[in-house]
């Protein structure tokens, strides 16, 4: 069963279109990274899945229900971490989590374990007012995990987290996914997602500009692979012997080549035939950043 179905969804605020004709579906246990510039519609999409707002057109289905029309019970299966999460400053972290657990109908004795899990146990009895950005984010994550949600929506979850905690955060996500939780997260920090996500959706101006796995997106973007040959003292000689290959840049000790993904092996075989003149080869595949820049700012592909 698909955990999330977004079917030709549009949402307009007044005259402004926040989303236009977005369609995709997510299987249970999937992890989708939602990328896009500010105002691209990521948060609007999450609000629709949470049932906070209704689509102007199209259909949203989460766990087989219409989130805006579903009974309140439905929300027990959702976990949400908003961007710039805020809590009541005067409450302690523990009280905050217990309050939210009660609201969600979750036994409040699970709170201590959750605080431990996000590394907030030592500060649990301090007031939220005294928390750093990262600590608030951890508390936000803890509340999103209350009651083992089946759908986890995380809006910019890793901002303010240090690298160690960021790694732990992705470990927690991996663990949840094994239990069948569907995770949808948005982020600006693209490189950290690269190793962790299978599915990527790139939003641009309210539309889905690209969708797929990273290799698929790489192929669709047809972005060139850059190859740097280290050729101390022999750069121009090597360059001359590379007939037919696009040479991007030559200087004293290296030659930069670009080629399509599909031509990469052919080029490498050619380079290997140049014997000892080439000391080393660096291959630079397009990163998520490159792909994001390509789709996030280039043409919208339908």
């Amino acid at each position: 069963m698909n955990a999330i179905v977004i079917d030709h969804v549009g949402k307009t605020y007044g005259a402004q279109a926040a989303l236009a004709d977005v369609s995709f579906s997510l299987a249970e246990g999937a992890l989708l990274a939602l990328l896009g510039h500010n105002g691209a519609g990521k948060t609007t999409l999450m609000k629709l899945m949470l049932g906070l707002i209704r689509p102007t057109s199209g259909r949203v289905e989460v766990l087989g229900c219409d989130p805006a029309g579903a009974a309140m019970e439905f929300r027990r299966h959702l976990g949400f971490l908003p961007e710039n999460v805020a809590f009541h400053d005067e409450m302690t972290g523990r009280d905050t989590l217990i309050f939210l657990a009660r609201l969600k109908g979750v036994a409040s004795n699970s709170c201590a374990a959750l605080l431990e899990r996000v590394g907030l146990a030592p500060a649990a009895d301090r007031r939220v007012k005294t928390y750093s950005k990262g600590m608030r984010q951890r508390l936000g994550l803890a509340q999103a995990l209350l009651g083992h949600p089946r759908i986890l929506l995380l809006d910019e979850p890793t901002t303010g987290l240090d690298p160690v905690l960021r790694a732990e955060f992705f470990d927690i996500l991996a663990e949840l996914r094994k239990g069948g939780t569907t995770v949808l997260l948005s982020s600006h920090i693209l490189t950290e997602l690269e190793a962790r996500t299978e599915l990527v959706a790139i939003m641009r101006a309210g539309r889905l500009a690209a969708w797929g796995t990273l290799p698929q997106l790489r192929a669709a973007a047809a972005m060139p692979v850059r190859i740097r040959l280290s050729t101390p003292g022999a750069a121009s000689r090597v360059a001359n012997r590379l007939g037919g290959v696009t040479i991007a840049h030559v200087n004293d000790h290296s030659v930069d080549l670009t080629c399509l993904q599909s031509e990469k092996m052919a080029v490498l075989r050619h380079v290997a035939g140049l014997d000892a003149e080439v000391q080393d080869v660096d291959i630079h595949l397009p990163t998520l950043d490159d792909i994001y820049l390509h789709f996030g700012h280039g043409e919208v592909i339908q």
Partner: peptide, 14 residues
Amino acid sequence: ERGTMLLLLTYPLT
């Protein structure tokens, strides 16, 4: 204004 409302309304709370 504090930003606490959005989170509360995603809970099972009308």
